[in-house]
Amino acid sequence: MGGKRRRLAQKEQANAKRLQKGQPGHDDAAGQPKPKKGANPAHQQKQHEKPTIPFNPEDRILLIGEGDLSFAASLATHHRCRNLVATVLEKSAQELTEKYPHAAENLTAVTSPPPPPQSDDEGEEEEDDAEEPDHHLAAAGRDAAPIKNRIVYGVDVTRPLPASASRPPPSRILFNFPHVGGKSTDVNRQVRHNQSLLVSFFDHALRALAPGGTVVVTLFEGEPYTLWNVRDLARHAGLQVDRSFRFQAAAYPGYHHARTLGVVKARSGEGGGGWKGEERAARSYVFVRKGDTPLPIGTSKVNTGKKRRREQDEDDSDDDF
């Protein structure tokens, strides 16, 4: 026992000397325990990374290829967007709900979003409001503004956007997870089909975009999506890359990835088929018209019933564009 105590005493003395010299000891300099074996520091950092919201609630937002409308519903309900146009390929609400039976609730949420819920922690809300009076008044003004959200059916991005979707010009155009569906089982052909889809989208989006507006495309990371070369396609269309950031589905409560072909049945017969696209790593790319200065993005706070965040969500922008 005496030898063990001596070793512990020597260890403590060595740590004390390191701290006096400004060097970390066996724990890090802040006194935090060492990470568990096998832990990936980059992965741990991403777990706590603040999400980037690429729009302001006051922006006129155009959503392309909205699928089951769950993303649009989240923007209307949780982000308090009041000037939102969501487009779908389906020609009617009936066709949409036949493809995505759960879309009826999202459809209502887009056009008639409920009032934002009050925080359970009134003390913390009041403290935040006292420190941020301008934001509080701005939020109150948004909630009092008339709701202009609407849904436009039968929009095919391989064709020019109809005036009902593109007028007045939107300041943000978002296309989440574009995909042509199962055109081919050949990877190269499938890549070409999706590249053709994006080329058409960029061309038509550029014509509709307001000065300084941004176009945002979100794709899954890894192949085959990296083979699409979305940045080069956008450049050839007359757009330039502003930045990119990691897409975090959790920033959009209620959002679930919808497949192009509709709801997939699982073996049990239930909808979903085990597909959880919102859990896959994805990245959003922000483009602006060449020569334009992009409109600024302010603080967009997600109303999830928890204490509101104080700062603008930061991105992990790519600097190598």
Rank of each mutant, 00 (worst) to 15 (best):
V187E: 14
E98V: 00
T97Y: 03
V241L: 13
V180M: 10
K11E: 12
D129T: 06
S166G: 06
K301L: 12
T299N: 15
E270A: 13
H193C: 10
A9W: 05
P224W: 04
L261W: 08
T226I: 10
C81R: 05
S164V: 07
R192P: 01
R172G: 01
Q23N: 14
L69N: 01
R192W: 08
T304E: 06
D27K: 15
L89F: 02
K290A: 04
R189M: 12
R235G: 00
K4I: 14
L209G: 03
D120L: 11
G213W: 04
A140N: 08
I147Y: 00
R235P: 00
T158N: 04
N15E: 15
A139E: 04
F321P: 02
G238Q: 06
R189H: 13
T260V: 11
H236M: 08
T108D: 12
N149I: 06
F177P: 00
F201A: 14
R207N: 12
K17S: 15
A42S: 11
G272K: 07
G154K: 05
S74A: 01
K265S: 10
A251C: 05
H26S: 12
E223S: 15
E279C: 06
F177E: 01
G238L: 00
K11T: 13
R267D: 10
V288Y: 00
D120W: 08
N303R: 15
G154R: 05
A72W: 04
V152F: 03
G271M: 03
G25S: 09
D315N: 13
T260Q: 14
P133T: 08
H26L: 06
G305D: 04
F321V: 00
M1S: 15
S112A: 13
D68Y: 00
P117G: 10
V263A: 08
G3C: 13
Q312P: 12
M1N: 14
T214L: 03
A30H: 12
G141S: 11
R167K: 11
V216C: 09
T293H: 07
N188Q: 12
H102P: 00
V215Q: 06
G274F: 11
A145E: 05
I151C: 04
P114F: 11
L63C: 07
G277F: 04
K301P: 08
A251P: 04
R310S: 09
L8N: 10
Q94P: 01
I147D: 01
E124A: 15
L62Q: 07
P113T: 08
E278Y: 01
E49I: 05
G154F: 05
A210F: 08
S112W: 02
V241Q: 05
L84M: 03
K91D: 09
E278C: 05
S284H: 01
H135G: 08
L8E: 12
D242I: 11
Q10R: 15
L75V: 06
E124N: 09
A73S: 03
T260W: 11
P133R: 09
A249D: 00
A30W: 12
R243G: 10
R167S: 10
Q23G: 00
V215E: 04
G141T: 06
D59E: 10
E49W: 11
K11F: 13
E223C: 13
H102M: 07
H79R: 02
T87R: 02
F201W: 09
P35C: 07
